[in-house]
């Protein structure tokens, strides 16, 4: 991990930098338009409704891939902030269940780390639109926590 990224994570934790800056470092996160809301130490990820992310123009519905990418990126940022000594999380696998159509509206996601090991993290991600209790998708992913850059 580069020193500049480590410094940014530390600054976010101390409230000296905006979490959004951490998100916006990632080109694909900007491509989707992912935002972040912080309440105390709780993070909610937001995929604001955006015509560029539409998959089904008739409904209209969001592209399942955009929702999945949003959830994967949410998990990556979440892990980065949870680790004492941050390492770069690399996706090993990502499994998603689509429960409801992702309508053309804002989508929210929250993450829960099931286990944070030395080398592997297991994360559960849930995304919703109307209410948190009615997720549109749930996902489970494993990440390799790597010392290296690549």
């Amino acid at each position: 991990m580069t020193e500049s990224l480590k410094a940014l994570i530390e600054a976010c934790r101390q409230g000296k930098a905006d979490y959004q800056d951490l998100m916006d470092r990632v080109p694909y996160a900007r491509f989707l338009g992912i935002e972040l809301r912080v309440q105390g130490e709780e993070l909610t990820f937001v995929l604001p409704k955006n015509p560029e992310n539409i998959g089904n123009p008739t409904l209209p519905a969001l592209h399942g891939g955009a929702v999945a990418g949003f959830m994967e990126q949410a998990a990556i940022i979440f892990i980065l902030l949870e680790m004492g000594e941050p390492k770069v999380p690399k996706t090993i696998d990502f499994t998603i269940d689509y429960l409801r159509a992702g309508l053309f509206r804002d989508t929210f996601a929250e993450c829960r780390i099931t286990r944070l090991g030395r080398r592997i993290a297991n994360v559960h991600i849930s995304a919703w639109q109307k209410r948190r209790e009615e997720p549109i998708t749930i996902a489970r992913a494993h990440f390799l926590l790597s010392e290296e850059n690549n």
């Binding site: 991990m1 580069t2 990224l5 470092r25 990632v26 080109p27 694909y28 900007r30 491509f31 989707l32 592209h63 399942g64 891939g65 955009a66 999945a68 990418g69 949003f70 994967e72 990126q73 990556i76 770069v88 996706t91 990502f94 850059n149 690549n150």
Partner: peptide, 24 residues
């Protein structure tokens, strides 16, 4: 493409972009 990169320090494509393409 540069805007599909997941790790700006390496330039590797984001897993989400690969996922979206595969789902389609």
């Amino acid at each position: 493409r540069e805007d599909l990169v997941g790790n700006p320090d390496t330039g590797v494509l984001h897993g989400g972009a690969i996922f979206a393409m595969m789902d389609q």
